[in-house]
Design a protein around this nucleic acid. Structure first.
Lengths: 376, 376
DNA sequence: GTGAAAGCGCTAACAT
DNA sequence: ATGTTAGCGCTTTCAC
């Protein structure tokens, strides 16, 4: 569908309202298009009087620059793309906020896409953003570990790089040394280690690890940190105490409920993220179990719901918004068309730390689980 | 700054990698650019064999279409813009989700901007999106009622319309009959009326209305609904029971705390939204007041936190995501360059309904407030 | 300080 | 079914 091209001159003296262009403005102001351009971009010496006239003409004609023509003619697309799996998930929303703010700060607009967890869609969106000549495409959150997928992603990264744009991996593992990406990560494994250790320090030995798709890098790293902490303290790993699954609230609720019925004994649960923790908390509540008296509970991410739960959730804080900011910051400044090493590759790893609130206590005298006495 | 024209990655014998264009692909495939275009857009008869060759050439050259050139040459920008005040606020996030999904469904990409509540920024973003030739610009959430601002907004609406694009007002009052906008609203006033009536029906007479910037249309409408319910039931309006303010959690918390210390008596609280309710809930909790035994509490929006609070919050549900969807749906289909009445103006009003959960009970024997006995 | 003109990469008539 | 050829609206040397 084309912009209205407006037919005909009509009989009346009205000129058809075709959108005004530089040419119109130039004519109207009695200058050349070059001058109009210079005025609009205010980046070139132009006589005050001339500028005044041009601006007046533009205003009068309701001139609105065409960003496409502008982008085509040379300068960058002034765009940053961000791809998340779900906008309403606070984890992604906070990162998106960081990206949006930094993009705006860098005088760019932000293209946003939601994959709903579909890697195929992710790839397609990268392509679309590349077509829009985005200066950077930020890929947020854990990724699956399919070789074909990684290969495709790498290919896209190269294509983008060939075009002077950057693919930013935010909170997911690097694609390897040869692939021109910018990596902005956080210490997933470390955070999980720290909070598990926190639990152990409080005396817990039987800790239930709950949630997180085993296929997602994020979830895998958290589980790895958890295991390392156990190992370091010489605590035997009990397979039934590892219950990965999904990252949603309903998973936390349902699985916890099942486990409460016929799962192993445990005195604490480490939910793979705060959302899962919220679900688990509900199951615990409905089972008449108190947190932290009967069972301790911790999460990961420190999104707002962590403070809304009762008791308030002890969890791992990630500098979400900061990650988003850094992602675009290094992508935009890290390779300013300077001829550094060919594809500018950056890496950044932000720290995490645990936030202690009220959901952890010493282990209950009678640990919870199959065959234990249940209070109801 | 131009696309990097530079050296190819690796030291091997690569030739200078300028981004491939239709011309390159055409040459490489031994066809004309027109054919390449037809293949890429798969919307025109092309011999299978030819198509095959072209596709191969494109793949081989790593051809990525230039969306700007494409947009310039005729077709639309394939873009929908959305402007919200804050992405991490679930109210906006859900609407944004609807917009994004519908945009994607309509084969468009989504430009997102956050104003952080600044009307000036809002205007600026509209302009930017117009420059990008967005097919629709969705403005989400309440607005201030400044005449100059409305005038500016109207001007932008006209400019957009002149360009075949639509300004969509989502959850905010129309700009008037003369202005070419698409309006997608929900029944703010009605929801407030309903939930206040719910409280009254349970026996409450002294209801505290808490939060919401008086300058925002959203907040004003909610307060209006509240007042109408009171009036209809013949309940006298007590000025001190109306405590507008902000839409944030901290406002709810602080003001509630102050009010608990030296405010008027009340048996129920109607928070202007769920976030404010969450803050109020905390203040209540800290004061040793139980909900709903000592005081009832309701909110507005029905965002996820409403289910996370204990007791679960009774509130007003708004079809947030649906609004977002409709916003782009009517904007995109409502005026398909057909020559209907000049500027296609649409309007849509979605319903709200209250969701009863556990935060409302009958009034406490001893109403809460200044001079009342407080349990601690 | 300002103008003229050559593209940027693509699509869409219009030919063939 | 495929090729030719104008532009789309803007920026940007290069002259003046």
């Amino acid at each position: 569908m084309a912009r209205q091209r407006s037919t005909a001159p009509g009989g009346s003296g009205h000129r058809e309202q075709r959108r005004a262009t530089v040419v119109d403005v130039a004519k109207h102001a009695g200058v050349s298009t070059a001058t109009v351009s210079r005025v609009m971009n205010r980046n070139y010496p132009v006589a005050a009087a001339t500028r005044e006239r041009v601006e007046a003409a533009a205003r009068e004609l309701g001139y609105v620059a065409n960003a496409h023509a502008r982008a085509l003619a040379g300068s960058s697309g002034r765009t940053v793309g961000i791809i998340v799996s779900e906008l309403i998930d606070p984890f992604y929303a906070y990162i998106a906020r960081g990206v949006e703010r930094e993009a705006t700060a860098g005088d760019r607009l932000c293209l946003v896409c939601c994959t709903q967890g579909d890697p195929q869609r992710e790839l397609a969106f990268i392509e679309l953003m590349h077509e829009r000549r985005a200066d950077a495409v930020v890929l947020v959150g854990g990724s699956v570990d399919d070789p074909d997928y990684r290969a495709e992603l790498s290919r896209r990264a190269h294509e983008l790089a060939a075009d002077g744009a950057k693919l930013v991996l935010c909170g997911r593992p690097s694609l390897g040394a040869g692939v021109p990406t910018v990596d902005v990560e956080y210490d997933n494994e470390g955070g999980a280690f720290a909070i598990t250790d926190h639990l152990i320090t409080r005396g817990h030995r039987r800790i239930l690890y709950l949630g997180g798709p085993p296929a997602l890098s994020t979830a895998r790293d958290r589980l790895a940190g958890h295991r390392r902490a156990l190992e370091l303290r010489g605590i035997e790993r009990v397979p039934e105490l590892e219950q990965p699954g999904a990252f949603g609230r309903s998973f936390g609720y349902r699985r916890m409920r099942e486990l409460l019925r016929d799962g192993p004994e445990f005195t604490a649960v480490f939910a793979a993220n705060d959302i899962v923790a919220a679900g688990a908390a509900q199951a615990l509540e409905e089972a008449g179990l108190r947190v932290p008296q009967d069972v301790s509970l911790v999460g990961y991410d420190d999104i707002p719901v962590a403070q809304e739960l009762r008791p308030r959730l002890t969890t791992v804080r990630i500098p979400l918004e900061e990650m988003g900011r850094q992602a675009v910051r290094v992508a935009l400044n890290g390779g300013d068309e300077d001829d550094w090493r060919a594809p500018t590759t950056g890496a950044l790893r932000l720290g995490t730390h645990i936030v202690v609130r009220d959901s952890v206590g010493p282990p209950a005298a009678a640990p919870h689980g199959r065959g234990s006495s249940r209070q109801v």
